[in-house]
Nucleic acid binder design. Structure first.
Lengths: 146, 146
DNA sequence: TTTGGATAGTTGTATAAACAACTATATGTC
DNA sequence: GACATATAGTTGTTTATACAACTATCCAAA
């Protein structure tokens, strides 16, 4: 028997990720209300490209904690939306380098603003140091399991 | 303007729920390794039924933070696996009451054990009071947004 | 230079979530 | 009792995820 550390309620919440689901839903609603035709998952890919443009799909896999087929299809859809372009690498023709379009660059400010707004709503009434503890714990969880 | 409370890394982790995703994946792998032919989502429905059997699909929606079509299909799949049975309510024929089968009752101990094990791995090296803070913050986030 | 293993990406299939539109049943009001 | 409205559940469609199997390219060792 492992131990008695977790009461049921805790266990369920941790595993099902109710909080992050709620945050993602709220942000999606904001995107929809702003007529941004963009899913949170697509946004999360753009998020990495805004930090560094022209990375490979494999690097997007690592950065976004998704497998290769997931990234293939997200990039497919982002390409349909004309937000990214696949460019075959000259030095290694196995790789596609993913580049943002002008249209995608324009989305950064507005969507980051909505994301910040969402987090402020989510964390209203929580003190900064408790947020810090929470963030650190979640990081350890991720590191423990990845 | 919202504020500057969040650095990028924090923001992304909170929204995409990397930690809970990692926990769910680890638990799924344990289910697979134990030859339990069961998804985490299906397990999370059983979880509520183990607490209270014979509730309606709508109550499962509320308990599991899912919409009605999601529950319809999860119950469909659980029925195919012969883990639950839909029983039309006598008092209100719009409702299906969902009952666990004997087979599903047998799964409770083993899967809860695997879930506890997973959480112990996830939270290794985190002190109980920090876990508490984290859990409380996540609960507030959920309450703020639901 | 050939060959075999590793790496990058794609495709097929199953499960799941969100949203809209739908059916069936219940209920309250006239 | 009839009708409007609300509630419970289902179905269709799109997007996303996981896993397995596949192709194409690269690279290193014989």
């Amino acid at each position: 028997m492992s131990n008695n550390q977790f009461k049921r309620g805790e266990l369920y919440s941790f595993i099902t990720g109710k909080a992050s689901t709620a945050i993602a839903r709220r942000l999606q609603k904001k995107f929809n209300a702003a007529n941004l035709n963009l899913t949170i998952e697509q946004w999360s890919v753009l998020y990495h490209l805004w930090k560094q443009d022209g990375i490979s799909q494999q690097e997007l896999c690592n950065a976004s904690f998704r497998d290769k087929p997931s990234i293939t299809r997200l990039v497919d859809n982002l390409e349909k939306l004309q937000l990214v372009k696949r460019v075959s690498s000259e030095s290694d023709r196995r790789m596609n380098l993913i580049y943002l379009t002008k249209q995608a660059l324009k989305l950064q400010d507005q969507t980051m603003e909505l994301a910040n707004e969402t987090l402020n709503e989510a964390l209203e009434g929580v003190s900064p140091d408790r947020i810090d503890v929470c963030r650190e714990v979640l990081q350890i969880v991720y590191d423990n399991l990845k």
